[in-house]
């Protein structure tokens, strides 16, 4: 057990990572990363390919064991806990490469999240009812009876989100749910995230789509080669010359300038 770093009277952050590191072979995928997320906040995580964004999520959710450092959820140390324990602590996630349960329908996929991810739905029937509500929320009710393999890219991402929401999380980690979507699909996804946030869910969003991440995030953390390059409000981060030059490319920098 580790002592909280903040003063005793400060609210406990819902998620805190301290010195989180992970080595693959001889390479540090993530090295000494620390940050905290307050309840109700939306934190964006950006960085070029290979910066360690997905590794970060995998370490938080227990899908990878950290080589060093700690993960605290609601002030409680969950480092090296198994994924299901962390899920039951109210942490849900999506996968960048969607991982639907292919053998069952879209509706059942979401119901599996509902029946195992929280302590409310104790029967299959209740879970299926919850699934119907959540499918409506993310807008794929019309695909409820389909096999996951029949879904479009956008709908598969929505399913991924629906599965996570069915766990009724207090903290939601989303891994590039908008990559490869069309503009109006991104718009509706952004709307949905705003809605989730208003209902009180804390969100950590890893995203490549810049426009989207700026419009949803309160704060942004920039990862590079496994370390935090900088962090701050979207405007602060975007005006940081290092970020503009190195990670967003010259074109984006020019567009911001005009």
């Amino acid at each position: 057990m580790i002592a909280p770093s903040a003063p005793a009277d400060a609210p406990v952050p819902i998620l805190e990572v301290r010195g989180l590191s992970r080595k693959f072979g001889g390479v540090w995928a993530l090295r000494d990363v620390s940050f905290a997320v307050a309840a109700g906040e939306v934190l964006g995580v950006i960085g070029p390919n290979g910066a360690g964004k997905t590794t970060l999520i995998n370490l938080i959710t227990g899908h990878l064991r950290p080589s060093g450092g700690h993960v605290l959820v609601g002030g409680i140390d969950v480092t090296k806990q198994r994924p299901w324990v962390i899920a039951h602590d109210g942490v849900a996630r999506t996968f960048q490469i969607v991982k639907p349960f292919r053998g069952v329908t879209v509706r059942e996929n979401v119901a599996i999240g509902a029946m195992h991810g929280n302590h409310r739905d104790r029967s299959v029937r209740e879970a299926l009812e919850t699934a119907d509500q959540i499918l409506e929320l993310v807008g794929i009710t019309h695909r409820a009876g389909s096999a996951p393999s029949e879904l479009s890219v956008a709908d598969a991402r929505r399913l991924e989100l629906a599965k996570a929401l069915a766990c009724r999380p207090r903290l939601l980690l989303i891994d590039e749910v908008m990559a490869g979507l069309r503009p109006q699909e991104i718009e509706s996804a952004v709307g949905l995230i705003h809605q989730l946030r208003e209902s009180g869910i804390t969100i950590v969003a890893v995203e490549h789509v810049m426009k989207a991440i700026i419009s949803i995030s309160d704060r942004i953390v920039v990862l590079h080669h496994g370390s935090i390059l900088t962090s701050g409000t979207p405007d602060q981060v975007l005006s940081d010359p290092r970020v503009i030059e190195a990670y967003l490319g010259h074109r984006f920098a020019r567009r911001r300038a005009t």
Binding site: T61, G62, H63, R82, P83, W84, A87, H88, A92, R93, F95, K99, P100, F101, R102, G103, V104, E108, A111, I112, G113, M115, H116, G117, N118, S123, V124, A127, K163, A164, A166, C167
Partner: peptide, 24 residues
């Protein structure tokens, strides 16, 4: 037909995803 049955199917399809939705 039970929750456990769905958990078995989830484990069959993808263990990482099963763990993520709280399946031990």
């Amino acid at each position: 037909r039970s929750r456990f049955g769905y958990a078995m199917v989830a484990v069959h399809e993808d263990e990482a995803a099963a763990g993520a939705v709280g399946i031990n």
